[in-house]
């Protein structure tokens, strides 16, 4: 009887523990973000460090964003054309490509690409600094490690994400143009005109709101995972850093997609 009760109780036990751990973790991330964002405004402002991070997160990601954006746009053009042509409405291809890019694919794909390129390196860099006592060294020098390491990265992400999203959107629309107009022969004027008539400011601002939210989420999660590498159960040293990096990437990606759904439902 007791064993039977155990079988019933154990899953609930596990669920309860996991839920408490998740809520605790989210709370800790929220406190971490609040601290880091308050410290952004502490004087003197860390302009040069922020510019360096904008260069690393933003400028150095342009090439990959261009490539991914171009091919996403091209494949959208291609798929969209063959789907729309069945209904004889290939003329709306421009609108389909532009709206899906500006509202959804632009912010989400950009965020996923930056997670892969810069988010993982943020987690790994801060994680290595943690295990080699560099963060403790900052603390002993009375340099606030969160202000020194995390705040510039959050600011840089908030600046870079919308800009990279904008680049992604534009290059994606050009990609759609290449496959739709140049390769498949849709009229160029119709393609561009449909974009102009269908895209409204609300679509653009919605996309930017998403990219701002993603910037904050990605930078906070990645820095948090690196910063608390040493607190991970069962992961020490290099293994701890690798686990932290993996968690940072997985958690950021999942959260980006969840928040994307929530924001879309709010914005629509």
């Amino acid at each position: 009887m007791a064993q039977a009760t155990n079988y019933v109780v154990t899953p609930f036990n596990w669920l309860g523990k996991a839920s408490i751990a998740l809520i605790g973790e989210l709370g800790a991330i929220a406190i971490f973000f609040t601290q880091a964002s308050c410290l952004i405004f502490s004087l003197p402002l860390q302009v040069s460090k922020t510019v360096q991070q904008v260069f690393f997160i933003g400028a150095k990601s342009i090439l990959i964003i261009l490539l991914v954006g171009l091919f996403t746009g091209m494949v959208l053009g291609l798929q969209g054309y063959y789907t729309l042509v069945k209904f004889g409405s290939e003329g709306v291809l421009g609108a389909a490509v532009a709206l899906s890019l500006i509202r959804e694919l632009g912010p989400v794909m950009t965020a996923l690409m930056i997670i892969a390129r810069a988010g993982s390196s943020m987690a790994a860099e801060i994680g290595i600094m943690r295990i080699s006592e560099q963060i403790d060294a900052l603390d002993t020098m009375d340099i606030n490690p969160i202000r020194f390491l995390v705040s510039p990265r959050i600011v840089a992400s908030v600046i870079s994400f919308p800009l990279l999203t904008a680049i992604f959107d534009v290059i994606g629309i050009i990609g759609g143009y290449l496959s739709g107009v140049v390769l498949l022969g849709i009229n160029s004027g119709i393609y561009l005109n449909r974009i102009e008539t269908s895209v409204v400011m609300q679509d653009v601002s919605g996309g930017f709101i998403k990219s701002l939210a993603f910037g904050i989420i990605v930078s906070t999660i990645c820095c948090y995972q690196g910063y608390f590498t040493h607190m991970r159960p069962g992961g020490f040293g290099a293994k701890g850093v690798s686990l932290a990096t993996t968690s940072a990437v997985v958690l950021s990606c999942v959260l980006v997609l969840i928040v994307d759904y929530v924001l879309t439902s709010v914005l629509l």
Binding site: E125, I128, S132, Q134, A137
Partner: peptide, 20 residues
Amino acid sequence: RTLFKRQASYMFQNNALFDS
């Protein structure tokens, strides 16, 4: 605490140099 930290300095066993 800030005042104490500013007066103190710490040399770590494994140096803890900023490797970047």
